[in-house]
Design a protein around this nucleic acid. Sequence first.
DNA 1: TGTACATCAGTGAACGCGCGTTCACTGATGTAC
DNA 2: TGTACATCAGTGAACGCGCGTTCACTGATGTAC
Lengths: 202, 202
Amino acid sequence: MSPETAAGPRERYRQQVRAEVQERAWTQVAEAGASALSLKAIAKQLGMTAPALYRYFASRDDLLTELIVSAYRELAELVEAAAYPAGAGPAGAGLHAIARAVRTWALENPHRYLLLYGTPVPGYSAPPEATELAIRIFAPVLAGFGTTFAGPGDASTLRPLAFWTRMHGVISLEVAGHFTGMPFDPDQLYTSEIASVVGDLQ
Amino acid sequence: MSPETAAGPRERYRQQVRAEVQERAWTQVAEAGASALSLKAIAKQLGMTAPALYRYFASRDDLLTELIVSAYRELAELVEAAAYPAGAGPAGAGLHAIARAVRTWALENPHRYLLLYGTPVPGYSAPPEATELAIRIFAPVLAGFGTTFAGPGDASTLRPLAFWTRMHGVISLEVAGHFTGMPFDPDQLYTSEIASVVGDLQ
DNA sequence: TGTACATCAGTGAACGCGCGTTCACTGATGTAC
DNA sequence: TGTACATCAGTGAACGCGCGTTCACTGATGTAC
């Protein structure tokens, strides 16, 4: 038995309610944006009163933080799984896999993606853990290009950064709806952009 | 005398109040985000009561629409001015000028930029005029590459699109603060990215 | 130049609504003997 | 197995706050004769 399943029924119930609250919270973020995230509304949807939620989350911002951190974590695990399929070889193919994994995730979870990489939530500052996860997500890209951060002016980091910005350039405009009605295939553009920066590496 | 200056004092006062309201509105968008845009708060800042603002704007969303459209218009004029300096020659140099103009504008007006290209304001749908302006902004880029929209699968639009997405990839991550603390120079990355797609065109 | 009238900016009260958060409390559930 | 106790989820009332929008109204400004 893992520690989770070994926990008492009270603790298990706790985790279940927490999960339900977060699920509703995501729906809210999707429908009305992160700044409209409301504990009272979530409580109502769950058939509870608002003060009850304070047993599970210290505050509204605390809940938002958990959403952000869990989205980062989800993406980090996704990227790592794509980059290192079974402890396999390092560079090259991993980058294409990362690119595909990130775009698929972003299109399936546009609001998760926008919460992480879109307009910052005003008045909210991300916890250090979020920054650490952002770095962790980028690490496999650096590794894929066989480099590390060396310092300003280091030209070897330019390509991993370009990989990252080309990826986000296509994805963010697509997810924000700026391609709707335009006569071209975003997927083709994305593939071509990724190939242009990974290119002769493999 | 232009028609504007020929208008009566009442109309001139009207335009001045409208401009003041919009100015405060931009400050609000910057400080608390577009979804926190509040007529009551603006009225208070201006030393007026909220109902007075309904003489100038039909509703809150109407004001937001004017902000968005005016930002698009500002950017459109900027891009056109960069692309066609004095009715000069067509391609090549114009693209670098566009890229520089857009980035400068975005860094000087991060909230205007994010309002146009960041996370869509939930529950708000842009008017047709905004879409028209977005197309108008992109037109000089197409012209710079000597192409037009021909239809899906037309490979000739891939480069202008790549120009656009590489531009936004760097700018949007930079403006959203995702580069802070990272040991590299975004300007260098941007220049390199633009060169990579304009490249041998000139 | 003077008067009567129309226009319109702005007020103040009110509507119904939603928010985060606190507090004292009830009542069910789990735990220790 | 049974009882006493501790734990803790959830309630209901209340706090002070802000929102968009409407309405009837006052009073200043501009306009026409």
